[in-house]
Simulated scan of single mutants.
Amino acid sequence: MKKNFYIRSALSVILLMHSVVSIFSGDVNDFGRLYLDAIGFSPFGIYLAWAVKLIHLFSVFLIWSDRWVKVVSILNMFILTLGIYFLHWQNGWYVVGGGANGIEFNVLLICCFLQLFFTEYHSGKIQKRSS
Score class of each variant (00 low, 15 high):
L80R: 02
H18L: 05
L11P: 00
K2R: 09
F118E: 04
V21M: 12
S131N: 15
L54S: 00
I79R: 09
W89H: 13
Q127D: 14
F118K: 05
F113I: 01
S22P: 15
D27A: 12
L109R: 02
G32A: 04
C111R: 05
E120C: 06
I126R: 02
M77Q: 00
L87R: 11
Y94I: 01
C112K: 01
L54C: 01
V28H: 09
I14G: 00
L109S: 05
C111T: 14
I63A: 04
D27W: 15
N101K: 10
L48S: 05
F61A: 04
N76F: 08
S130Y: 09
W93K: 04
I7L: 01
I84K: 07
H88M: 10
N91Y: 07
F86S: 08
L34C: 03
F105V: 15
G45A: 04
I7N: 01
W93S: 00
D30S: 15
W89M: 13
G92N: 10
Y6Q: 11
M1N: 03
E120I: 10
V72H: 00
I126E: 08
V69P: 12
D37M: 11
L62I: 03
A38W: 04
F41E: 06
G97Y: 12
N91G: 01
F78A: 02
G97H: 09
A38L: 07
P43T: 12
I103D: 06
I79A: 02
K125Y: 10
V13N: 04
V69W: 04
L54E: 00
I46N: 11
I55Y: 01
P43V: 06
H88S: 04
T119P: 07
G92M: 13
H18K: 07
T81M: 09
L116V: 00
S131I: 11
G92T: 13
T119G: 04
V95D: 03
D37Y: 13
